[in-house]
Design a protein around this nucleic acid. Structure first.
Lengths: 272, 272
DNA sequence: TCAAAAGTGTTCAGCATACACCCATGT
DNA sequence: ACATGGGTGTATGCTGAACACTTTTGA
């Protein structure tokens, strides 16, 4: 049924890679706040010379997340404040008629790049989200999806906070949210909602930007388990005395379940 | 740094597979409504004889989602009403010191199996969620994660509706939600909230279960874009006249962007 | 004292909760 | 008539939206 003969098949094991959509705030030529992201220029066919998401193949002794970090470090020295698995792409349109080409895509938020701490090499350049070049593969679609995820999550304090610096005023945070959504947000209500989340801590420092009242400077402090990462979730689960679901009301401690993460061999998991 | 010599490395290309957590409603021995899921018995080392999630390797001309459907069909002839990518697992604990073992996991909801339409072969068996056998690899943790996802989403009408049959009464839907969460839910408010979503359609049929007033029978009708699947999302995006983000207000149609999904070569995406 | 941004108060609408109540049906 | 589950009404409280208002600062 498959296209390609046996020798081709042998030469083409599953093509699996990790890519990262890295997002940071910056200003466009008019001074308006925009999302920027680094792209790398391809030095091989196909799409030679086109721009693409940073990424790489899987390597030994490196988890998927570590591979994502490696891709991050290849394009920026900014410390990522947020890294989350986005989606794994593997539809038929990406393959060459053989095994599917699989891209495990992460998205990352890095702090505002006021220091322009960019690796502006020949083959790496930052682009504003609204003025992207022609992109290789389906990377344009992947970026659009990552931007959509950001826009649907920007209302959460942790996401917004990680797009600005270590510390920030509520006005700065508010500006970020408005820049990302493109919609005006009532500052008074924003302030109350964010503070009510309990995820911001007043540093006691005041900061002035103009000839007017100085603003309180806040710091983000992680709330209990807002993570969507299953590993974080599993880790929390392991802390319990039994293997039951957090929502169940069972309280009788049982023997410890086996370690959650052990070896796997998914290729042979299906008994036939 | 890596363990294993070159020949081992050559014999072990990236191990990538697709697994599925398939969930259906059934009753336990006491008649209580429970979630059941099918497992397959391993016929190979490691974990020979242990139970594991249905799954398989990637094959030519089959997308990830199609591989998930294939795994589904190997254990049940029930038609899946819901199939969504859950997460891609690939931490170091799953590998044997070499390339990471990657499992792209989907979760599926199938209708209540009143017909016991189970493939109860020797190597396939359904288990209630609260009485699972010893599981291979980290599959117990993956199942726990899928159950958590279900419990956090069960409040949405589409998820609950897809756990019951094609048509159902509001009481039946309500029972499902209570069975999954384990919490009592006020029926009157549940009814209003669900109907207010506009995702249920009255079939006009009435159904009686006891010696009392018959209940209205409803059918689920998909609302506009509640999908978390990026491909659904991208498809909607392609319907637009330009390549801009749905939230932007730009209205000037430009030339059609190139097709969103084309070939990919993630292994060489990183230019060095 | 004025402008400008920081920060607070107040009203209103919507929606979920809790729970009392009425309705339809077979025995 | 009555038991049983289907279905509705209603008071209460919380939360976000809208927007008027007060406070703090430098010039």
């Amino acid at each position: 049924m498959g296209i390609g003969n046996v020798s081709e098949r042998r030469l083409a094991p599953p093509q699996v890679g990790v890519s990262v959509v890295i997002l940071a705030l910056g200003e466009d030529s008019t001074g308006r706040s925009r999302l920027w992201l680094p792209l790398v220029r391809r030095v091989r066919q196909p799409f030679l010379g086109a721009w693409a998401l940073p990424g790489g193949g899987l390597t030994a002794n490196r988890s998927l997340e570590q591979s994502a970090y490696a891709a991050l470090e290849s394009t920026t020295t900014l410390h990522p404040r947020y890294l989350e698995q986005l989606y794994t792409f593997g539809d038929l349109g990406r393959s060459h008629g053989g095994l599917p080409m699989v891209s495990i895509v992460y998205w990352a938020l890095v702090g505002t790049a006021e220091a322009k701490d960019f690796v502006e090499a020949d083959n790496v350049r930052w682009f504003p989200e609204n003025d992207l070049p022609e992109l290789a593969f389906d990377h344009k679609a992947i970026i659009d999806y990552a931007l959509w995820r950001l826009r649907t999550r920007i209302a959460y304090p942790d996401v917004a906070a990680r797009l600005v610096g270590e510390t920030f005023t509520l006005s700065q945070l508010h500006d970020v949210v408005e820049a990302v959504t493109g919609e005006p947000v009532d500052l008074a209500n924003f302030r109350r909602r964010i503070l009510a989340s309990g995820e911001l801590e007043d540093t006691g420092v005041k900061q002035r930007v103009g000839n007017h009242r100085p603003a309180a400077v806040y710091r983000y402090v992680a709330a209990a388990s807002t993570s969507w990462n299953p590993y974080d979730w599993l880790k929390a689960d392991e802390g319990r005395t039994d293997g039951e679901h957090p929502d169940t009301t069972g309280t009788i401690p049982g023997p410890d379940p086996p370690p959650a993460s052990v070896d796997d061999d998914p290729m042979s998991a299906l008994a036939r």
